[in-house]
Design a protein around this nucleic acid. Structure first.
Lengths: 203, 203
DNA sequence: CTTTTAAACGAACGGTCGTACTATTCATAC
DNA sequence: GTATGAATAGTACGACCGTTCGTTTAAAAG
């Protein structure tokens, strides 16, 4: 059926927007209903529980990230160009995301301690997938000869993740106008290190 | 007077512990009171508002970070050894912190959108101070000749911040057993780049 | 057009929230 | 040992929470 599905999507879209400032736990059924001109119970019926609503929000985020970041980036040529496209799209994603920053980032630090919650489980899966895609892109860059043969693709993903998180921290909390320049510089340094010598082991 | 002060500290210590899993907003006066065997109103009287309680928690965190990370680290010899000590102490801090991860990290992503809130304002100040201390340590490492003359100390702080955030992300959300090794490796790579050539500008 | 099914509503439930008052207990200083 | 003020308790409040249930409206199917 069509009508219910449409309303449900309207709800989830708005819930995503709200959650980016209030957090997933800060979402309220009543508040959402008022915003959308629905009754509390009418809205609630679409999900059956608040947890299910949170899950729906996370699924929408994952779907959008796939569509707006990963898929377009993976259409770029294999190797370093593709990695750069991931970075550029990812930065755009960080800047968009409805003035509330990346919902994944917010959810990551909100749910990290909520063991055994379904939203957390889903988020972990989605984030692992995301970072594995990135690692795969780095692996391809090795095969193309753009990155050094000793490079650890997962380590690359770890460090690029750090750049994005630091960017979010400096821009959204600290309101540092240089945040974007710093992120780009950090990324360039990471790329440079990945091309040449790399991977001296710690201590 | 002594008695009230003591109780207040007991409250704030426990609130800090709770907030590391539930978040600052997830703190509840009633819950805290029950946990500590106090009445809701008796506990409330110590602060006058929930916001004041959150503020007290953040102040305790800042005080502890200063005492357990920055001060000990700055007793190390100037330059790279001092930077290493900051990293080691910071990693210890990340691992301790009452099984709930670094409260600053959690609070950063919880409060980043709550404009005009006193807790946010305090957090921003504390975090800027922390990162400026780190940048100062990097500046000193330049003066000692350990770091390259072209190094941007704030950029160094940005990237080291990224390592810690990524560590938190991979360890606490993703539960990746290699998280600590990855963080140490990222830090070593950052150090290596800071010693030699650095700072090629982006695009 | 009628029947059936989906979608939304309205009211109410038991709880918990932060906060405001007043009263009581307790520690401290005289 | 009593007075004084701080520390804690008790009670109540209005608001909002997620959720349930029975009803009503609206859409889809026959």
């Amino acid at each position: 059926m069509a009508k219910g599905e449409e309303t449900r999507e309207r709800i989830v879209r708005h819930a995503l927007q709200l959650s980016s400032t209030e957090g997933l736990e800060g979402l309220s059924i009543g508040g959402l209903a008022t915003d959308l001109g629905l009754s509390k119970s009418g809205l609630f019926a679409h999900f059956g529980s608040k947890e299910e609503l949170q899950l729906a929000v996370l699924k929408l985020v994952a779907e959008r990230f796939e569509r707006e970041v990963l898929l377009p980036a993976f259409r770029a040529p294999r190797g370093e160009p593709r990695i750069r496209r991931v970075f550029d799209r990812w930065m755009d994603w960080m800047n968009d995301a409805a003035q509330g920053g990346c919902p994944f980032v917010a959810a990551s630090f909100e749910l990290d301690d909520k063991v055994d919650s379904r939203p957390r489980g889903y988020l972990v899966t989605a984030q692992r997938l995301l970072l594995q895609s990135l690692a795969r892109a780095a692996q391809i860059a090795k095969e193309e000869g753009h990155f050094h043969a000793d490079l650890d693709p997962e380590q690359f993903a770890f460090e690029m993740d750090g750049v994005m998180l630091s960017y979010s921290h400096w821009k959204r909390l600290l309101r540092d106008p240089k945040a974007e320049v710093r992120a780009r510089q950090a990324f360039e340094r990471l790329l440079a290190a990945s091309r040449r010598m790399v991977n001296q082991t710690a201590s």
